[in-house]
Design a protein around this nucleic acid. Sequence first.
DNA 1: TGATAATTGTTATTCACTATATCAAATATC
DNA 2: GATATTTGATATAGTGAATAACAATTATCA
Lengths: 172, 172
Amino acid sequence: MTVSKTAADAVRPSRSLRKEPVDPALDDSMLQLGELSGLLGYSLKRAQLKVFEDFLRCVEPLQLTPAQFSVLLLLDNNPGRNQTEIANTLGILRPNFVAMLDGLEGRDLCARMRSTNDRRSHILVLTDKGRAVLARAKKLVSSKHEARLMEVLGPANHAAMLEMLAKLAREF
Amino acid sequence: MTVSKTAADAVRPSRSLRKEPVDPALDDSMLQLGELSGLLGYSLKRAQLKVFEDFLRCVEPLQLTPAQFSVLLLLDNNPGRNQTEIANTLGILRPNFVAMLDGLEGRDLCARMRSTNDRRSHILVLTDKGRAVLARAKKLVSSKHEARLMEVLGPANHAAMLEMLAKLAREF
DNA sequence: TGATAATTGTTATTCACTATATCAAATATC
DNA sequence: GATATTTGATATAGTGAATAACAATTATCA
């Protein structure tokens, strides 16, 4: 088949003939996702984007991205670690972690200290401000963000989902 | 508390004293994720990355990214649509969709045809090659990618997960 | 009808995130 | 003590996502 270079438009579900008013927000005449809605990866990504958006909204007064929050949380749970260790557990490449730390350190949320054992490495420490911000962030995340997730999914589903996602992140 | 600028390294779970051999791949002395493992968004993102990696592996002979696959699939399911409609349903911004289409059209997987109704818009069409590639891609995705997901999660969990993710992508 | 607004595809540009190679300083290995 | 490895860092490139602006076309409506 050779394709002609023009074409009369195909069957539009003719928005003008529709009876029920279409959702004005995500309208677009409702295209058929088809097999796409059965693709786990597709829904996974779209859900992830939505969840991150909500995270940003909930924690907006503190100006923390999910990645930054995860760093602060990890520092709090693992004192005495260096950049490589923190970056690796978060799946961040060392070169990219430098600028990220510069940002956090520039806002006085954490600090690098030269290790006395190994003078190559920087031990990462939460500052007092970092601890305070983290504490407030945790409250916002749990009371707003996670609370909303719980509400939409229900506690049982939320737990089941968490377990499955962790399994995928681990074994896949 | 003012932070001194150096510090003796804190309690390392002393890798040297461990009895069981640590997983050499993701080692890093097993940092404590702490509250991070309870954050749905965190696991969601890590799982999504793993799933997309697997998708790329499975469909590697066809050199299709998840985004490209989704475009081809959508074109097949929705003939006669223009760029704006396709881009919008996939959450791709129109300006960014241009280069993406250039790539697909350059590989002769789809084509833009000027609409006779509205000479501004381009109706998107799958080429024969595009249909053939899509068919092969679908087989690879279902026999390798989705099959693996099924195997890891189990059919029931897979279905439950899909439903929850769709709900999040929709209502969140 | 004709002036004005809106839409479509496009370009340019910016920002964030990711990835690789490379480097000097410090440490480990043998 | 020579060589290799590790650590933080820099430079750089690639990709995705976001906004503004533009020409061509179509829609609106006074």
